[in-house]
Design a protein around this nucleic acid. Structure first.
Lengths: 202, 202
DNA sequence: GGTTTACGAAACGGGACCGTTGCGTATCGG
DNA sequence: CCGATACGCAACGGTCCCGTTTCGTAAACC
């Protein structure tokens, strides 16, 4: 028994460069964030932008889909911490996080993939949605349920519908806002409008 | 002066086949409706599906973008006729039209293009949005304004925000409805939920 | 019949990527 | 120093699509 290394039995030879690995994933996320669809995402483009040989990519991932999965997995989803003081404030926090994300290339990855590639890469998108949007959806559901319990929201409110209205409205704005400028108070206005409803006070 | 034809001075030789023209446009719309992005849309694929030589396509359109514009232009946008009996009914009609469209390949073209290609083909998308979504947006705005005037909607309602809430919510459902099945009563439920708002009656 | 134009099919040279391989160099352990 | 492995780079044959050209045929006009 010559091998007696400490723990993880380090293989001989030059170790793989973590820097290269990061550069590859960064490049991948950059391209996706810029609107490149998964189908048009090319290994050569990733390698070129990462300043890396194609070999280095193929040595780690056997196909494009695996690389994309790993790249997206590094996108951690830091949920905004909720103050819990009022349901209105918490909803604004959640929606304002969406607004802020809409401006960042990195966070655009989520929305770009989910929007355009859902039909063609259903399993990839599904695996990823569970990680990125499910926690947010759950957080919003919790807030809404709490609001119903405390009387801040109407008792007969359909929780799923409420969440759909709020997120759908924000999503609509992030995609088709005039001139792409998202007003800083957008989340607040959306929440207040949705809370109040369109019907007049009877 | 030999040329003295009746009216449109028909050019000599075999006339262009209208059937081929239609087949090309049909094939284009099919592919887009199936989720093919504009960037990956290839002339060869269109020609193949249309049962047509590439020559026949290039003879009519000098580039892919022109073809796509013409193809999308044939998508007429039959707005649902509004009964005008009540604002609630009209809003349901408008939203239910969205729900029905979401199931048809042809109508999916609009949403697919607008969603995924907005960044890369801004002028094409813009030209097309004016034709397809602007009339609908305007119809909804009219209905909402009428509702405000008749007292069916709250007088302080932000018209644009109201339209965003309704269309955004429907859009959210059409894209991410569980199992892709859109319940027939979805439009009604959305309208009622949005009208009522989430806040309890004070 | 003769002319003119459109048609579908096939082939062209050119470009982008594919996934793989070989090369010379760099970096680790022994 | 030596063997092993990773590195960036360049090149390979292969596939897909590009936009163009050529070919034989089809359909309109005179």
């Amino acid at each position: 028994m010559t091998i007696q290394e400490s723990g993880a039995a380090r293989p001989a030879g030059r170790p793989r460069s973590e820097k290269a690995e990061k550069a590859i994933i960064e490049a991948t996320l950059d391209l996706i964030g810029e609107g490149t669809g998964i189908s048009e995402l090319s290994i050569e483009a990733i390698a070129s932008r990462a300043g890396v040989g194609k070999t280095t990519i193929y040595r780690r991932w056997s196909n494009k889909e695996d690389l994309v999965v790993d790249a997206l997995a590094t996108l951690k989803a830091p949920l905004p911490s909720l103050t819990g003081t009022s349901v209105r404030d918490d909803l604004i926090s959640l929606l304002d996080a969406m607004r802020r994300d809409a401006g960042e290339t990195r966070s655009r990855c989520v929305i770009n993939i989910a929007m355009s590639e859902a039909d063609r890469y259903p399993q990839l998108v599904a695996r990823f949605l569970n990680r990125a949007v499910e926690p947010r959806k759950e957080a919003m559901r919790d807030v809404i349920e709490r609001g119903i319990a405390t009387g801040e929201l109407r008792p007969d409110l359909d929780v799923a519908m409420g969440a759909a209205i709020l997120t759908g409205t924000m999503l609509w704005h992030t995609k088709w806002a005039p001139a792409g400028a998202l007003a800083p108070d957008l989340a607040e206005r959306v929440v207040d409008a949705v809370l109040a409803g369109m019907a007049p006070l009877t």
